[in-house]
Design a protein around this nucleic acid. Sequence first.
DNA 1: TCAAAAGTGTTATGATTACACCCATGA
DNA 2: TCATGGGTGTAATCATAACACTTTTGA
Lengths: 237, 237
Amino acid sequence: MKKEKSEERLGLNLSQENKIEIDCVIFCFEDRSLKVLLVKNENDAMNGNWRLPSASLEHGETILKTAQKILKKHISKDDFFLEQLRAFGYHSSTSFQENISIGYYAMVRREKKKEDDEEFHSDIIWIDINNIADLEDKYMMVIDFSIKELRKNICCSAVGFNLLPEKFTLLQVIHLYEEILGIEINKTNFRRKILQRRLVRGLAEKEEGVSNRAAEFYSLNVPKDELFWNAKFNFNF
Amino acid sequence: MKKEKSEERLGLNLSQENKIEIDCVIFCFEDRSLKVLLVKNENDAMNGNWRLPSASLEHGETILKTAQKILKKHISKDDFFLEQLRAFGYHSSTSFQENISIGYYAMVRREKKKEDDEEFHSDIIWIDINNIADLEDKYMMVIDFSIKELRKNICCSAVGFNLLPEKFTLLQVIHLYEEILGIEINKTNFRRKILQRRLVRGLAEKEEGVSNRAAEFYSLNVPKDELFWNAKFNFNF
DNA sequence: TCAAAAGTGTTATGATTACACCCATGA
DNA sequence: TCATGGGTGTAATCATAACACTTTTGA
């Protein structure tokens, strides 16, 4: 309150100097599709208008802490991957000069039952990346960039496994890559490829109640915090 | 001047709100080594203290334009590659809260003769990345990140060719990759690898005055603006 | 039995590696 | 002639792709 008054004295121009927003693209992988979390735009007169979860960078707060806070507000678990995308400059309808957004992207493992009713009551939505429409340009820009970044990174690191549950089948991995990259993958060869790198470990445990041969469950063979930097490989799709 | 007075009225805390610096890591490749441009730190009492070329983000200016201005101040040609790294948060000795730097990295083709005397008289230095020392933590952080980014990018795109002159020998390319990645490369195999991708084109023109068999000159076979995004390849070193 | 997905085996291809070799040039 | 780097040829090895095949499960 006090702060706003001070700024008013300086006039519009200075008060908008270097206002920084932190925007988060939070990905999950569910029902064989890549989704991002959107929240209802409360400042907007039109109802049913969505935006990325975001926050202004406050005094004495770091950009990373701010991004982490945004995540914790929406994600119940502490178990998420979070990395910065870059800084974006954009022009909004309300200001003449360029605004700054620092984009982050996150990956979470979504557990279905627990969170379904949560979503039902609240002002959030997990939406398939192919169905996103009518977002402000700024948000589309950040989302588009984040998807490109995600595509790049899952081909040269194992970071994509942050989207899978602890136990997963190899078909889930294939679906993940197919969906994110928008390609079709030869299952038998991909399976060999991924097993050769010794990135995953068979659990001697199988699916149950499926109407076909049950697939073995696998789990990661490397610590999660190494997925991004240390678990290198080259998928040349 | 006028602006500074306004800020003073608000006291230290608010005046530093969201102050954004743009820092540029400008790379060149010369004498078989990767160098970055440093400028003399004029605000510093101690002489001989260097920093990255940088600028504050001014009113009504975009981050990209600001970065381009920094480059043009030091580089005579318009022919450079410039991309953002990311936003960095850092703590300086003079302020309690986190400052924001948006880092960019650039690659320029350095022509020796023209610029040598320029450097002799002025307050800039092109320094081998292995000899950088005594920079502020903030600058080291940006430089370290930029080198990692450069390493990553030259392995999956042809962006590194922005550091070479129009005409180059294949040995120059090899030296470039060896120096940036810190590895040794088998010359005969690398040569075939790079020719297979049809990235370069022989010029039927040879070195002169060398004390060994003259190497053929090559030039790029793709437009420069495609080097980063479109000229993909996978060097798995 | 069928459909659907799991999973194995095999062969061909193409990229990469290692290494031997010859070529051109100035000192 | 020698040293230095340019440049070619070739065989072995490894990763990938393509495809045929068998296995397991519920309906």
